[in-house]
């Protein structure tokens, strides 16, 4: 058996064993189904949800919020990173402020955003953006600063103008850094959206979980968590493909895990 197959078999075995123990534990009464509903119950609940239109509205809402926070966060973070990366003086001046902002537990901004922007889409995106922005910013900043000096000198000797340098040297260099942090950024965007929904909203996966929690419905909470995980895994796969396409120029050893 090839190694790869062995790994997959082992992984499937672990999951099956865990689910089986759980299921049997609940059925025999060893595990309290009020706190840990059986996997079969959870599957039933998710199936039930999937047959309702409301559930898909929730998924759609969270998806839109995630994508918007992601795009806006990356755009602002990248612009800021390039600007500060190219202006060491400004970077030195604002560095402590950025550190302070980054030190704020962003989740706590959720309530203030709900007050400012209401229960709708904007407050969710705002929270997601504050989370994504810093990841994108720090990586772009690093990317711009760590441009290989020989590459830079060579481009200058080929008479590259400032805008050419930005387009052909700084941006591609930063892109590699942004891409390598993309997975973290996507996770952050989802987290921002869901937490903001949880704090106050009328739709979305976070809202779904919050509602279940309100009536002490552990099945609903667990089912919500599973749906969310599947959601993130799906987004991750999309990111993975984007990354592979954009980084074809890289030596394979560098991003093979």
């Amino acid at each position: 058996m090839p190694r790869r197959t062995k790994v997959v078999v082992a992984q499937v075995a672990i999951v099956l064993a865990l689910l089986l123990t759980w299921e049997l534990g609940v059925r025999s009464g060893v595990i309290d189904s009020f706190f840990f509903p059986a996997p079969s119950t959870l599957v039933g609940r998710i199936k039930e949800w999937m047959s309702t239109a409301d559930f898909w509205t929730d998924v759609g809402t969270t998806l839109v919020e995630t994508i918007l926070s992601f795009i806006v966060g990356i755009a602002i973070g990248t612009a800021l990173g390039i600007w500060l990366g190219l202006n060491p003086f400004t970077a030195d001046v604002v560095q402590p402020f950025i550190k302070i902002f980054n030190a704020i537990p962003r989740i706590l901004l959720g309530p203030i955003f709900v007050i400012w922007f209401g229960l709708g889409l904007t407050s969710k995106v705002a929270l997601g953006v504050t989370l994504v922005l810093f990841v994108a910013f720090f990586n772009t900043f690093q990317g711009v600063r760590e441009v290989n000096p020989v590459v830079l000198a060579n481009a200058r000797l080929l008479r590259a103008s400032k805008s050419s340098l930005l387009r052909h040297v700084y941006l591609p260099s930063a892109t590699t850094w942004i891409l390598s942090s993309l997975r973290v950024s996507v996770g952050m965007a989802v987290m921002g959206a869901v937490v903001a929904e949880y704090l106050g909203s009328s739709a979305g996966l976070g809202h779904l979980i919050a509602q279940a929690e309100g009536v002490l419905d552990a099945t609903g909470v667990f089912a919500g968590i599973i749906v969310l995980s599947a959601f993130v895994v799906a987004l991750d796969a999309v990111v993975d493909r984007a990354e592979k396409r954009l980084l074809v120029w890289r030596p394979p050893a560098a991003h093979e895990t």
Partner: peptide, 22 residues
């Protein structure tokens, strides 16, 4: 230069033509 400063994200032909694009 002593060390070649090719752009790693550009193909050989795009690296050769870099100065022209500039």
């Amino acid at each position: 230069l002593q060390q070649e400063g090719l752009l790693p994200w550009k193909t050989a032909q795009d690296n050769v033509g870099l100065g022209l694009v500039f």
